[in-house]
Write a protein that binds this DNA or RNA. Structure first.
Lengths: 138, 138
DNA sequence: ATAGTCCTTCCAGCTGCTGGAAGGTCAAGG
DNA sequence: CCTTGACCTTCCAGCAGCTGGAAGGACTAT
């Protein structure tokens, strides 16, 4: 299988697949012409990665998940721990975004949105009394 | 005011303030010794930026907001449009993250998390029948 | 004079790709 | 045999938004 077919079948851009090879997530063979030759197992790995990435796992998490996936003697506890930590990060991000939404939607609602310069949004952003809210978002 | 004081009073790291100067968001004066000399107006701008960033606005959005803030003849409609577009992006991100949380928490719950290798999380990630979910997340 | 804390610039690196240039390879058609 | 076009290759640069560190100057207190 050439990279184009793998890309089509996994939904990953060819560029991304090359990048994953570069960082050692997959190691396709090479044809004599220099083209990457993907085995079924490579394609399978890449599909796994695509799904893990779609769930928001970092590349390093994906690497760990893949290692666990390929380890017959893994303990499901290790996988679960990883997933739980990730779940917490997602929930944290959701909370941060919801706080932003809350504040922002209040400001937006208060704004007339007409030709005049008076604007509660700008006013809210320039108010001195609130210390800069630290969202801790990455 | 030196950078240290501004950093302490805005909550922004000095490094970030230097970066904001580099990209033209603020233009502090310079003392004869080469130190940045921040005016009240600079500090105010930086506090504005800190709050806008905390609401998740991109740097370019912040630049636009700052320009509107300093334009006495702005129309609040312009500010509102910008904020609404950003609000939509936030909501989109929340939806994406909630979908991740949904899937992930199901997998986590299904996983025994013990010493055995059987793991619904890894199984879920390796299943072929579902095409790689496209979350459209950035 | 010295120590310690500030400040300066510059360069490199983080995540996870993505775009583009310059060029090799292959299959089909004339 | 030659060309066209679609594929593939490598390499280099860039995105956002900082962050860390090195190397060195400036200021304050003793």
């Amino acid at each position: 299988m050439n990279i184009g077919e793998v890309a089509a079948r996994t939904g990953l851009p060819a560029k991304t697949i090359r990048y994953y090879e570069e960082i050692g997530l997959v190691s396709p063979l090479r044809d004599v012409n220099g083209y990457r030759a993907f085995r079924e197992s490579d394609r399978h790995k890449l599909a796994f990665l695509a799904r893990a990435r779609a769930l928001g796992f970092s590349i390093e998490d994906c690497r760990a998940l893949l290692a666990l996936y390929e380890d017959d003697h893994r303990a499901s506890a290790d996988v679960k721990r990883l997933a739980e930590r990730h779940l917490e990060k997602i929930e944290e991000k959701i909370r941060t975004l919801e706080a932003m939404r809350e504040t922002l939607s209040e400001l937006v609602e208060a704004c007339a949105g007409d030709h005049r310069p008076d604007c509660p949004i700008l006013k809210g952003l320039s108010e001195e009394d609130q210390s800069a809210p630290s969202t801790g978002v990455a």
